[in-house]
Design a protein around this nucleic acid. Structure first.
Lengths: 165, 165
DNA sequence: CAGTGTTATGTTATATTGTATCATTACTAG
DNA sequence: CTAGTAATGATACAATATAACATAACACTG
C-alpha cells in the first residue's frame, strides 16, 4: 500500500482518536481507512473489499469490512451514506470536520456527493424543530437525495444510464 | 379490501392526478396504493407484497410491487425513504402536501418517521445553497437519519434491539 | 373491428446489500 | 502464564433490488 503524505496525516489523526477513546486502530482497520481515503469517492462495502484486495496483500472478506466500517463510523472516522449504501472518510479524519450535523447532497443517479457547509444558525434552528418533533438532533446526519447538474442534463437529453465520471 | 372513507378520498385524488398526467390508475396500482395507505407506516416492497397478498385476492409478486412503487413515486403519490428502503403514501395523496422539498426525520433504529413541516424561508435559503453547489433542488427530498426519543432512551438503558411499537 | 404499437403485468432468475453465528486469533490485565 | 475480552476469519443465509423476456391489456388507426 503506497501512502501519500496526506494519508499518513489522516492515519495519525485516526490513531490519536483511537488512543483517546480507548479503541484499537489495528492494521486491518488502518488499511480499510487508507483504502477508503485513497478512493476518495463513496464506495459500497463490497467495492471497498475489492479495492482492498487489490491493494493490500492480506485478503479481507466483506463481513469484516462491514464490521470495520461500523467501528470507524462509531468513532466518527467515516460517514455512512444511508441513501446510497456507501461509505466515505469523514472530513474530520483530515482535520476539517465542523462537528455539527453533516449535510450531504447525494446524486441519486451517479452517486457523487457534496458535503455542504451549513451556517450554524441554520443547524440550531433545525435542531430545535427536530427536538420538538420528538427526535434526537445530536449525532444525526442529513442527506438530500437529488441530482447533480451533469446527471440532470443527461436526463433532460434523454440519455438515461449515461454515467459521467 | 375494506376501504375507509379516507382511503376512498385518497384514491379519488390519485385518479384525478393520473387523469391529468395521462397515466393509468390500474386496479393493481390502486390496490397497492390502498394497502400502503392502510398500513400507515413505512414498509419495504417485500412487506408490502405480504400485506397485499393477505388483503387482495389476486396475488402479486414483489417485482410488480417495485414497478408500481416506482410509478407511484414518479407521479409523486408515494415517497421512497431511501435511508431505510421503505415506502409511504405521500401526504398530497390525502390533500396535505406542501409541494416543496419534503423533510423526513427517520429513526434509524425502529424506522418510524416524521414528516417535518419546514418554513418556506428555510427551504428557499437551502435551495440556493444546493443550486450553488451544483445540485438540483427541485424534486429533491431530505432525510435526517436520527433516533426517536423512545429508541434513544432504550439505547441509553442498554437494551439495544428493543423495538417499541 | 382487425391490426399494430405501447403500456402494464407476469414469471423466472440473478445480482446486490446486509446479518447471524460460531470458530479462531490477538491483545490486556491480573 | 492464563483467563477474559476484543477483533477477525469463515460460512451460511436473509433481505433488498434488478435484468430479461413473455404475455396481457389498452389505445389508436385505418
Amino acid at each position: 500500500m503506497m501512502s501519500t503524505a496526506a494519508a499518513k496525516d489522516m492515519v495519525k489523526v485516526a490513531r490519536s482518536i483511537c488512543d483517546k477513546t480507548g479503541n484499537r486502530l489495528t492494521e486491518t482497520r488502518q488499511h480499510v481507512l487508507e483504502v477508503l481515503y485513497e478512493l476518495n469517492t463513496p464506495v459500497s462495502a463490497y467495492e471497498l473489499t475489492e479495492h482492498y484486495n487489490l491493494l493490500i496483500d492480506s485478503p479481507i472478506k466483506t463481513m469484516s469490512v462491514y464490521r470495520i466500517l461500523d467501528f470507524l463510523e462509531s468513532i466518527r472516522l467515516v460517514h455512512r451514506l444511508r441513501s446510497i449504501n456507501k461509505y466515505i472518510v469523514c472530513n474530520h479524519s483530515i482535520g476539517a470536520c465542523h462537528h455539527t450535523t453533516p449535510f450531504f447532497l447525494v446524486c441519486r443517479s451517479c452517486h457523487c456527493i457534496k458535503d455542504l457547509e451549513i451556517a450554524t444558525e441554520f443547524i440550531t434552528a433545525f435542531s430545535q424543530q427536530v427536538d420538538e418533533a420528538g427526535f434526537v438532533s445530536a449525532g444525526s446526519q442529513m442527506e438530500l437525495s437529488s441530482l447533480c447538474n451533469i446527471c440532470q442534463q443527461n436526463l433532460e437529453s434523454n440519455s438515461p444510464g449515461d454515467i459521467h465520471d
